[in-house]
Simulated scan of single mutants.
Amino acid sequence: MRFPTRLLAANAYFALLLFAGYVVVVAVIAAGVAVFGTLSQSAWEAAVQLPRWYALFTGVALVRQYLPMYVAHGQTRRQFGAQAAVTVALFAPFLSALITLGYLLEALVYNLAGRPQALDKVHLFTEPTQVPLVFVEYLLEFVTWIVSGTFIGAGFYRWEGGGLLLIPVGIGLLLLNEGAVGTDHLGLPFIGDRLALDLPHSLGLALGVGAATFVLGLALTWSIIRDMPIRNRKS
């Protein structure tokens, strides 16, 4: 089995289908708000909370679903770990490009409708049309959400219920990235402001922290899967 090309292509194709459908759903909701209420800010900004969770569970599936499959077809755990890192490194910018495209499509529609595309939260960018900064911000977020998913998924696969103990570590990676980016977008109601990290707001720091969480998340995942037994699926 060719890896990561087939896995990456399959995930990218599925993400593209979801993106197309999601754009339609968000557009319908935004149109409803515009007709029956007041639409004065970016609807896409609020909508991109959900793709973060999609990225998280993509990371979970990478270990829980695909590691046993590829090991059963002759891949070593070391080969899988290295190639999974490549998959994450390529899939995260693909998702980021889709989110960036969503902002641009929204900007076009808002301009035609004469609506302001105001932002409600703090970002690396100040305007949704600042394409490089929009792309970088969501790239850093998706990288962190995916590797947090691989780490947590590996824990649940190896220790089943014991994987619950790894969730705080995964959340810690997310908080570290959010603090560096200067945003507060986790969307977790049980995470209060007191847990937010108030780090200096700079692009260089955000890139450095994003790279660090990518490496750390994959290293933690590798520490779990390097000698992890492969269980037979229950019939």
Rank of each mutant, 00 (worst) to 15 (best):
F80W: 02
Q75G: 00
V136A: 09
G155P: 06
I99C: 03
E127D: 08
L98Q: 07
A118H: 11
L105D: 09
A34K: 15
G155S: 08
V35N: 14
P93E: 07
V136R: 03
P51V: 05
T58A: 05
L139R: 00
L108D: 03
F142C: 00
P51I: 01
V109K: 14
A118W: 02
A31K: 15
I146V: 12
L104K: 05
G114T: 13
F125N: 09
V60P: 02
R77I: 11
F94Y: 01
P93T: 05
Y103C: 03
V33G: 08
L140W: 05
H73N: 14
L67Q: 12
G81V: 00
N111Y: 07
F125V: 08
L108I: 07
L139D: 01
A113Y: 08
F156Y: 14
G149C: 05
E137R: 03
V136K: 01
Q49H: 15
E141S: 15
Q83C: 09
V134G: 02
T100R: 07
G74R: 13
L50R: 12
F135K: 04
L67Y: 10
Q49P: 08
L112P: 11
E137Q: 02
Y70A: 03
L104S: 08
R52W: 07
H73C: 07
V88W: 05
G114Y: 11
A46E: 14
V131T: 10
G102S: 09
V122E: 06
V131G: 07
L139Q: 01
S40Y: 13
Y70M: 14
L124D: 00
H123C: 04
K121H: 05
L98H: 14
Q41M: 07
A118Q: 11
Y66R: 11
L133W: 13
E137I: 00
V109R: 15
V136Y: 02
P68C: 09
Y138H: 10
G153H: 04
L140P: 04
R52C: 02
P93G: 01
Q117D: 08
G37E: 13
F135P: 01
Y138M: 03
F36H: 07
L62D: 00
V122L: 11
I152N: 08
E106A: 01
Q79A: 08
Q130W: 01
R64D: 09
A55K: 03
R78P: 13
F94C: 03
F142S: 01
E106Q: 11
L140Q: 06
V48P: 13
V122R: 15
F142W: 00
G114Q: 13
R77P: 12
Y70N: 12
D120E: 11
T126G: 13
G59A: 04
V131R: 09
P128A: 06
Q79I: 07
V109S: 10
A85D: 09
R64F: 15
V28D: 13
L39G: 06
Q130P: 00
P51F: 01
A97Q: 09
L119C: 08
D120H: 14
A118E: 03
I29K: 03
L105A: 05
T38R: 14
T129E: 14
A46T: 11
A92G: 04
